[in-house]
Design a binder for these strands. Structure first.
Lengths: 182, 182
DNA sequence: TGTACATCAGTGAACGCGCGTTCACTGATGTAC
DNA sequence: TGTACATCAGTGAACGCGCGTTCACTGATGTAC
């Protein structure tokens, strides 16, 4: 069932989009190639016509998710404004469309070079943008590290100890020395 | 091959210790029951005489790792001193004996209630200790979130972009508003 | 433009593998006398 | 204290399952004339 070149391109993009969401929601090992292709409206057999392996798809979907994150950061205009959206319950509840660093960084550390390189490049760009926006690069880096850590911790404890989750997130947006802007 | 009650206790502790190390090094899904029991000097068949499931072992090993972390935090006496050890390359290179929050928090968020509860209880104790030590609880929480985020990011990018890894870690120990103590 | 055919994107069955888990068996432990 | 036996911790083969990956096949696409 050959399809148009244009449709083939859409299929490829759909697989990457589905993977970027599902990997963030369930982790790399928590979702399979079959489920990703199904979410993209295809069957698993079509997968290897688009990607060399599951790992290659992971690398591409990480790059895509980080590219979007960089866009969102740039669009927010102000690091404090970005932090407010980041350290929110809306973001906590929507990992599939949220920061890929907070959802996938620990798994990335155990992947092959292709994945780690894609992740590191996207993350560096993300930090560079934040540093330029903030002016003081050190405080920008500090802020981002805090945001990522707070979200990672909050998501892990939220269902059992929502008070702790809220407390950790709140530290990122209240008039703290680091995240303060005005 | 029945063994002494005392030896059985040692076997159980050895399985937990091996799991606490291996889970942190390779992730929950990156290591199997067979490998854990082998690392503890047993065969996989002995496992289910000690634990109901792999998940039950994960809950116990998380509780144990967090208990040790709380001890280390208390022993450091000062949150700034703890932060210095935490944000070090030695810690980055030794995930198996390091902070379980930085290695396992994202996977914990996708586990069952037993695991999440064990993790949340240990993490709360950890934060409570830090809050008491520091005096100002908010700045203690801020500091810990930053430490966890920095380590998660640094480990993910270290092999591809060691400069970025070092930069992120350095933010936690230099005379930053948040981590400063003196 | 119309036609014939080579190309190739997608399908679904099949594969090999590793994993968590079970279980019949073994033989040392610990206890009842 | 010594003996006989029930208990049970550990062994290793076996299981079912889901996963990543492969491949023969299908039929629409795109191209050469």
């Amino acid at each position: 069932v050959k399809v148009t070149r244009e449709l083939r391109g859409h299929h490829r993009a759909a697989i990457i989009a589905a993977a970027a969401r599902l990997f963030r929601e369930r982790g790399v090992e928590g979702v399979g190639v079959a489920e990703i292709t199904r979410a993209a409206g295809l069957t698993h057999g079509a997968f290897y016509g688009h990607f060399a392996s599951k790992e290659a798809l992971l690398a591409e979907s990480l790059a895509e998710a980080l590219r979007v994150s960089c866009e969102q950061l740039s669009a927010s205009g102000d690091l404090a404004a970005y932090a407010e959206g980041y350290a929110s319950h809306a973001h906590l509840r929507a990992p599939g469309s949220g920061c890929p660093i907070a959802t996938l960084a620990t798994e990335v550390a155990r992947q092959g070079p292709q994945v780690r390189t894609a992740f590191a490049q996207g993350t560096r760009k993300f930090f560079d943008i934040a540093g330029t926006m903030e002016g003081d690069r050190t405080s920008a880096v500090t802020c981002l590290a805090q945001l990522v850590g707070a979200m990672v911790i909050a998501r892990a404890v939220d269902e059992t100890d929502p008070a702790l989750a809220s407390e950790v997130l709140a530290c990122c947006t209240t008039k703290q020395p680091v995240a303060r802007r005005d």
